[in-house]
Design a binder for these strands. Structure first.
Lengths: 205, 205, 205, 205
DNA sequence: AATGAATGAGCATTCATTCAT
DNA sequence: TATGAATGAATGCTCATTCAT
C-alpha cells in the first residue's frame, strides 16, 4: 500500500513520481471545475509540466479520472483490510468501516469531491466504476452483515445485500452533504450516528 | 402542480404542451446517452421539432436539465404534501415518504437515471440543485423526525438533520443500485426494509 | 453532366451551390499548399464561409479530396462518352481521348495539380482512386485498342492492357511536366505528339 | 557510387553504416504506411535505435525522404552511366535504360512504392525533386533521342524533350501499375513492350 | 411560432524535435 | 555517439446557439 498511498498523497514527488503529481493535480483541478470543464492543459499547468507530458503517463483524460478512482480505491481497500484484520465482531467491523470511510474522504476534500460528484456523472462511468472496486467494497459490507446474521446478533429478515446498501447509502450521503455544505465541520465524527442508527435497527432485540 | 405533474408525465400533450414534450424527450435522451453526450438536436428529433424551436422554450441546454429537476421536484413535493396531509404519526409519515420516493422513481426509470446520474455530474449543478428543491425535501424529512423526537417516540441523541440525511441516503442508494442493476426488480417494496431498519434505530426503546 | 460540370466550374454559384463553392475553394487551396498543409479553415476562408459550414456539406477533409476526384472524373468520363459517340475508328478515338485529356486538365491548372500531385500522395488513396473511376478510364482506352487489334489495324503482339498503360502513362507525364514547368505553354497541342508516336508504334505496318 | 549503392541496399551494414540502416528502415516504413502516417519513432524502432539518434544523421523527417530519393537517384544514374558506356546506338541505349529502370524498381518493391507514391505527395517536393536528379534522368533520355535524331534513325518532327517525356511516362506508369496491382508479376519484362511501341513510333520509316 | 442553415469558439491529442545525461 | 523523456505547437471537428425567413 505504500506506493499507492503515496500516489494520491503526492509526497514531494521524487523523479519517477510524475504520475502521482499529475494525479494530484487532476484531483485538484477536477474538484475545482468539474471533469468536463477541466482542460488537460489545466492539469498540466497545475502539475507544472507540458501538455504533452500528461500523455506519457495517461492514455487519455478519461483514463486520468479512472486512475484516480482505481488508485484511491486500491488504497482504501487495502488499508481497510489491514485495519479490519484484528476486529472480529461484525458490529465493530461496521464501526471501523464507517470510521475509515469518513476519515478517508473527510481528510481529502478534493478527492471527496471527485468521488462524490465527478465519478457519478455518467452511467458509463458508474457502471465500470460499480463493476470495479466499488462492488468489492459493497461486498465487504454485505459479508460482514451476513456474518452478523449467522452469529444471530443481526436480524435476518432483511437481506444482507439490502442492508449493506442502506449502510453504504447513509455513509455516502454524509460525504455528499459534507462537501456541499457551506459550513465546514468534521466529517469523521458523524460515523457514530450512522452506526448508532444502523446497529439500532439491525441488532436483534 | 397541475401543469408540473402533466409536464413530466407528458401524456396526451395538448397544443400548448410543447414545453412538456421537450422535457420528456430530454429525459429520454439524457437517460440514454448522458447529459454531455446528448445533443440538443437529439432532443429536438426525439420531440419531433426543429432544433431552433427548443430555444423558444428553454434558454439553454443547461436550463433543460435544471427544468427537469425543478419540475419533477415540484411535482413530487406537492404530491407528497397532499398525501401526507392525513398522516400524523412521524413513523407513518416516514413510511409514506419512503414509499412515495421509491414508487415515483421506480415507475419512471428514465427520470430516475437523470436524477441519480446526470444531476450529479457537476459541483456547480449539485450546489444549485441542493440549494433548490432538494433542501426542501430533506427539510421535510428532518421536520418529521424532529416531530417524532418532540413526541418522545424517536431518540433525540442524534440530530434530526443527521438522521434525515441517513434516511435520505439510504433511499437514494436504493434507487442508484436499482438503475445500475442488471436484473430488473421492483423498486417500491424495498422501502419497507429501509423503514424497518431506520425506525428500528430511531424508535425509543 | 450538366450538374457535375457546373460543380467543378463553380459558375457564379446560386443558393444551393455552396457545395460547389467549397469544392472550387478546396481545389485552389490544395493546389496552392498541398493537401496536408491546407487547413480546413483555409478552405472555408477561400469559400467565404465559416469553418463549421464545411462540415454541413462534407463529412471530413478527406471526403473533400475524394469528392474533387469523383466529381471531375464523372465529369470527364461522361463528357468523353458523349464526344466519342460519333467517332468509330480506334485511332481517331485515341486521338479524341488524348485531346480531351490534355484539354481538360490544361484548362484548369489547379485541378490538374490536385490530380497529378495531391491525389498520388498515399497508397491508400491511390488504391481507392484506382479502384474507382480511374480504372474505368484505363479500361476505355484498353477496349479501344482491343477494337483496333480485332480490326487488324493495330498490331496484336502486345497486350491491349499494356498498350493502354503506355498510352495513359505518356499522357499523364505530359500533364505532370506541364504543371511543374516553369514556363507556361499550351498543354493541349502536345496530344498530337503522343498520338503520333503511339500510333506509329501500334499501327500495323 | 559505392557508398550510395550500399546505402540503399542496406545489407551487411557495418559499424558506421547507421545512416544506411535508417534509410532502409525509412523506405520500409514509408512504403508500409505512407510518409505522413509514418512516425519518426516507427523508423527508429525499425532501425533498432532510439528516436533521438535519427537526428544525429538527418536534420528532419523531410530530409530522410529527400535522402532516399537522392541516394537512389545517384545510385541509379551512376549505375546507368556505367552500363550505357558500351552501348552506342540510341535504340539500344533506350532499351538498356528501360530495362534498368524496371529492373531496379521491380527488384525493390518498397523503394518503388516510395518513388511512385510518397515522392509525389506534394508540389513542394515534386519541384525540388524535379529540379534535382530527376531532371538529369530525363535529360539523359532526351540526349539519347536527340542523338538518334541527329543520326537520322529517329524522326525529328517531334521534339526530343517531348519524346523523352513520353518514353519516361510510359515506363513510370508501368511501375505505378505494378505496385498497385493485386497480382504479382515480373516488372522487368514489360520493358520490351514499351521499347517496341516507342521505337515503332520513333524509328524512321 | 417554427424552421434549419450557418456560425465559430473551443479542445483533446499527436508527434517532430530537443537536450540533459 | 546514443538515449528517450519532455516539450508545445498545431488542427480537424463538434455542437450549442442564433437569426433571417
Amino acid at each position: 500500500m505504500r506506493k499507492a498511498a503515496k500516489a494520491l498523497t503526492g509526497s514531494r514527488t521524487g523523479v519517477g513520481d510524475k504520475r502521482s503529481t499529475i494525479l494530484r493535480a487532476a484531483i485538484k483541478v477536477f474538484a475545482g471545475k468539474g471533469y468536463f470543464s477541466s482542460k488537460v492543459s489545466d492539469i498540466a499547468r497545475e502539475a507544472g509540466i507540458a501538455d504533452g507530458t500528461v500523455y506519457l503517463y495517461f492514455k487519455s483524460k478519461d483514463e486520468i479520472l479512472r486512475s484516480i478512482f482505481d488508485q484511491a480505491m486500491e488504497d482504501f481497500i487495502s488499508e481497510g483490510k489491514r485495519e479490519l484484520k484484528d476486529v472480529s465482531s461484525p458490529p465493530d467491523k461496521l464501526s471501523k468501516i464507517a470510521g475509515l470511510h469518513l476519515e478517508k474522504l473527510g481528510s481529502d476534500r478534493d478527492l471527496a469531491i471527485v468521488f462524490q460528484v465527478e465519478l457519478r456523472g455518467s452511467t458509463k462511468f458508474m457502471r465500470e466504476f460499480s463493476a470495479a472496486g466499488f462492488a468489492d467494497y459493497l461486498d465487504i459490507i454485505r459479508a460482514t452483515i451476513e456474518d452478523g446474521q449467522k452469529d444471530g446478533i443481526f436480524r435476518d429478515d432483511i437481506k444482507a445485500s439490502t442492508a449493506a446498501k442502506i449502510f453504504y447509502g447513509a455513509l455516502d450521503e454524509m460525504v455528499t452533504n459534507w462537501i456541499l455544505s457551506e459550513q465546514s465541520y468534521e466529517l469523521a465524527p458523524v460515523a457514530n450516528d450512522v452506526i448508532s442508527i444502523f446497529l439500532g435497527g439491525m441488532l436483534r432485540q
